[in-house]
Design a protein around this nucleic acid. Structure first.
Length: 922
RNA sequence: GGGCAAUUAGCUCAGCGGGAGAGCGUCCCCUUGACAUGGGGAAGGUCAGAGGUUCAAUCCCUCUAUUGCCCACCA
């Protein structure tokens, strides 16, 4: 006997283990391939509600297609998440009074791997808690050996194709981590700031030229002032020099169209070393470039002594104060402006900083990816996301792929240098310090390349020699025993570089594996819109470039999960909804079903305890329906043919179940999860429980034996079918019921049961018409009873007046059901109605409850009058339409006929209501 | 500054060229043998506003307003 409620905590773990050990998650069946790669979460992360949604949708598809007989590969794994992970480990080291630099690269990486081993399983365990049916035996990690091999191959090939190159230019620099970040990792945040107007004295005059800036400290690196060539105010100044305050340097006033006369003062300070635009201006005018910052963001030794080693913030204050003291600060305006921040922490202000970095010229790759989407080889769902994809791809810029981190794929480039023999120990030949990059798959190949290049033996040194970038005066530290040396590039690759290969690197590429052949391109990628650029676009580029085919046929973009109040979840706000807490409280099925129901196409979804409670209640409802079946001996009958049932109610539920199954199937095929979930929800509540099981009750209690047998078998069939249809959404509760609602153990777990094939079942149209009439009649009685305050315990008779032959037959056939559901003593035909009836119209008939003297005449009159008014309103609406000659002339015939029918219906209704009112009065 | 999306019942959202839907909440009734994590009934909406297309517009088009998001080098 089933308990009154389902207790998820008792069964989820057990059932999950059964699935996993049975091999149900593994591919290898004979059907058509269906594959999904999971967006790999950060290996040391924890499951948040966004993951829960993302994984739920994938799992629904995986389970659905598996039941449909496809050979499903759901590829799981995790991402090494360079910056995030390195930061965590550094923080832990700091707590132990240790540091990354103090440990050194090798030891530090050992620490990271240790941490990965400790915490790396957590998120995967959480995905299991959710019920994810991924093939864990294939779990991959972006830094594991196979994937690293793919990364190296891709890098080397792109390098040799000339698409990867090193360049010295401004990058977005994170002074805290001391690494470059890509454009995408920058978030411009509006902050309150100031616009300082600073006077620069013009040489040999008592005049000033005033520039406006939000970053006054950068003036220490100014190398020009630019004005617009057509700006009459400043024409006379062009070509003159100004004395840069605080430094005394002389810098030119130049004319450049970059300067916008409308903005600021119309004259703009040019700092090529610390501003992307100024960098370009500097190039155009061959201006010197001065870097004023150290890598940690403090001011370096190229600024006047009072400012050295100050933080950016302190330097700003001091510069402003000093200028003010000198009377060179014209005014200070309070403004709000966008300032580049680190996209993840949103706290660190990034600086444009001149460094040498590795870049990938993505333009040719983007062209292929764009073409693939244009040709429909990959489809976006919803389709409008393709425009977002196109918009970015068509304006794509070189991707800065190097990071000054230790945790990540170390760039497979070795630098070599060769000392001229005659310079050994002498220290005067700069040529000796020329370095040459060798891009290679491994050290051996690098040595080979270098030896070919230098024509002599090469030795490896551990890391960049101190003298590699040193000045010639340091010659004497040279290791004289080696003439030619190579050392490996210390930088690592952007995490997204390896993620971009995920769809094929996880399948064994670059080897030509059976998986690749069968499962690439993958069927669908399920992800959120915020990583279209970071991830989707880059997978598209790498896939089309290296595999010659797109990585996925469909990209399903789902929306973000907000908290119940509609706010974005963030740790700082403390409104993060933890999916594990929800699973603990309501069960994984409840969370999954709620997420699926909320997964509309357009809007962000709001999820919180009250919503999930609804999902839990749904599970309980169905659980109890199954419990009712169990109590009434509804046992799955092997070989039962739903097409063979004879009772109206059974024919009806067979047809309704088939309709529901078709609806869910179509919705899932179209990736409309909310539609599929809603269809199931309403079928269970409104059809199966509220009507079918209620009607089955009297059958089970006092029906004929043959009817009982058929209804039991049909109920069991319908229940089993619903279990299967619900399984993708609520795998645990359905699996548990599947196991517990059969006398003998079933042959297979539900996870591998075939998706219900309902297409060939008869429609049972007559039974459906019967039931529609019964439902309408019962609802009519209930409505009257409630409104007329007929006590629930009272069992009045029902009289049916003016019934036609069909209604008479319907009443006769379904009398028992009607009496039970409407709580009536009798239901008979009548030619006339006694006084004091509560009446309602059903079809051509009038149904009446004779209430005698207890009837509240005024109330009944009002009720009927209200209905009558409604009918009259409708008639008026249809008349207006039908009286329009344009409508009659132009509307399609079937629409016209439909409108006439409806008009007639409303008109008949009005007549009968009028009669009823008349009887009431008379 | 450019782009995208949204605006439907008190709240959260579906829907979508031919008679306005769900969940939650509210109100009334019911502890009836599957389920009170339940059942029955009801109230509640000129589908943001203004134009246009159409025989017909909540739905298509344009504009406006409001909100949210994305992108952008703005001193």
């Amino acid at each position: 006997m089933l308990d009154k409620t389902f207790n998820p905590a008792d069964v989820e773990g057990r059932i999950y283990a059964q699935w996993e050990t049975s091999g149900a998650f593994k591919p290898g069946r004979s059907g058509q391939p269906f594959s999904i790669v999971i967006p790999p979460p950060n290996v040391t992360g924890r499951l948040h509600i966004g993951h829960a949604l993302n994984n739920t949708l994938q799992d629904i598809l995986a389970r659905f297609e598996r039941m449909r007989g496809k050979d499903v590969l759901w590829q799981p794994g995790t991402d090494h998440a360079g910056i995030a992970t390195q930061l965590i480990v550094e923080r832990q080291l700091a707590e132990r009074q240790m540091s990354r630099v103090g440990l050194g690269r090798e030891k530090f990486l050992e620490e990271v791997w240790k941490w990965k081993a400790e915490s790396g399983g957590a998120i995967v365990e959480q995905q299991r808690r959710l019920g994810a049916s991924a093939d864990w035996s294939r779990e991959r990690f972006t830094m594991d050996e196979g994937l690293s091999r793919a990364v190296t191959k891709v890098f080397v090939e792109l390098y040799r194709q000339g698409l990867i190159y090193k360049d010295k230019r401004l990058v977005n620099w994170d002074p805290r981590l001391q690494t470059a970040v890509s454009d995408l990792e920058v978030e411009n945040i509006e902050v309150k700031g100031h616009l300082w107007h600073i006077r620069y004295p013009v040489e040999d005059s008592d005049q000033f030229i005033t520039v406006a800036t939000t970053r006054p400290e950068t003036m220490l690196g100014d190398t020009a002032v630019a004005v617009h060539p057509d700006d009459a105010r400043y024409k006379a100044f062009v070509g003159k020099m100004v004395v840069l305050p605080l430094t005394g340097r002389m810098i030119p006033i130049i004319a450049d169209a970059y300067s916008d006369p409308e903005k600021g003062t119309g004259a703009v300070k040019i700092t090529p070393g610390h501003d992307f635009n100024d960098f370009e201006v500097g190039k155009r005018h061959k201006l010197p470039l001065i870097t004023i910052l150290n890598k940690d963001g403090t001011l370096n030794s190229d600024v006047p002594a009072p400012y050295r080693d100050l933080s950016r913030e302190d330097a700003r204050k001091k510069v402003v104060a000093d200028l003010e003291a000198m009377g060179l600060l014209e005014k200070t305006e309070a403004i709000t402006h966008a300032v580049p921040h680190d996209e993840k922490t949103k706290t660190v202000v990034l600086e444009p900083f001149l460094t040498e970095q590795w870049y990938l010229n993505v333009e040719p790759l983007a062209a292929k990816a764009i073409a693939a989407v244009e040709q429909g080889e990959t489809k976006f769902v919803p389709a409008n996301w393709a425009d977002v994809f196109f918009g970015w791809m068509r304006n794509i810029r070189p991707w800065c792929i190097s990071r000054q981190l230790w945790w990540g794929h170390q760039i497979p480039v070795w630098y070599g240098r060769k000392l001229q023999e005659d310079t050994l120990g002498l220290g005067h030949r700069t040529a000796a310090f020329q370095t040459e990059p060798f891009c290679a798959r491994d050290e051996g190949e690098a040595i080979k390349l270098a030896e070919e290049y230098y024509g002599e033996k090469v030795t490896i040194v551990d890391q960049t020699p101190a003298y590699a970038s040193a000045q010639p005066a340091h010659y004497d530290v040279v290791d004289r025993q080696s003439i030619a040396q190579i050392w490996r590039e210390e930088d690592v690759l952007d995490t997204w570089f390896s993620s971009a290969l995920w769809p094929f690197s996880t399948m064994g590429w670059p080897d030509e594996t059976a998986e690749l052949k069968k499962f690439y391109p993958t069927s669908v990628l399920v992800t959120a819109f915020d990583i279209i650029f970071f991830w989707v676009a880059r997978m598209m580029m790498m896939g089309t470039h290296f595999l010659g085919d797109v990585p996925f046929r469909t990209v399903l973009i789902h929306n973000r999960v907000l908290d119940e109040a509609g706010a974005k979840m963030s740790k700082t706000k403390g409104n993060v909804v933890d999916p594990l807490t929800l699973i603990d409280a309501y069960g994984a099925d409840a969370l999954r079903f709620t997420l699926a129901q909320a997964a509309g196409q357009n809007r962000d979804m709001r999820i919180g305890p009250t919503r999930v409670e609804g999902g839990r209640n749904f599970g309980t409802k169905f659980w109890n329906a199954a419990r009712f079946c169990e109590m009434n001996a509804c046992i799955t009958v092997p070989g039962f043919d739903p097409a063979s049932v004879t009772l109206t109610v059974n024919q009806w539920i067979v047809a309704e179940t088939a309709r529901t199954g078709a609806g869910i199937t179509a919705s899932l095929e179209a990736l409309r999860f909310n539609e599929a979930a809603d269809t199931a929800y309403h079928f269970v509540y409104d059809v199966f429980c509220d009507w079918y099981l209620e009607i089955a009750k009297p059958v089970f209690q006092q029906g004929a034996d043959a009817d009982k047998i058929e209804t039991r078998a049909t109920a069991a069939w319908a229940r089993d079918t619903i279990l299967a249809l619900l399984h993708p959404f609520m795998p645990f509760i359905t699996e548990e019921l599947w196991a517990r609602t059969s006398e003998k153990p079933r042959g297979s777990m539900l996870i591998l049961v075939a998706w219900p094939d309902l297409g060939s079942l008869p429609k049972f149209e007559e039974a459906s018409r019967d039931m529609a009439w019964v439902v309408e009649l019962v609802k009519g009685v209930r409505s009257v009873r409630a409104e007329m305050n007929v006590p629930p315990s009272a069992r009045p008779p029902l009289l049916l007046k003016d019934a036609g032959a069909q209604s008479k037959a319907l009443l006769a056939r379904n009398r028992a059901i009607i009496l039970q559901l409407a709580r009536l003593a009798s239901a008979e035909l009548a030619d006339t109605l006694p006084r004091g009836c509560a009446q309602f119209v059903i079809g051509e008939s009038v149904a009446a409850l004779p209430l005698g003297d207890v009837i509240d005449l005024a109330k009944e009159q009002a009720r009927l009058a209200k209905d009558l008014k409604k009918a009259h309103d409708e008639i008026a609406r249809f008349d207006a339409k039908l009286a329009n000659p344009q409508f009659v002339a132009k509307a399609p015939e079937e629409v016209l006929a439909e409108q006439r029918d409806k008009r007639a219906e409303a008109s008949d209704l009005a007549v009968r209501l009028q009669d009823a009112l008349g009887r009431l009065a008379g």
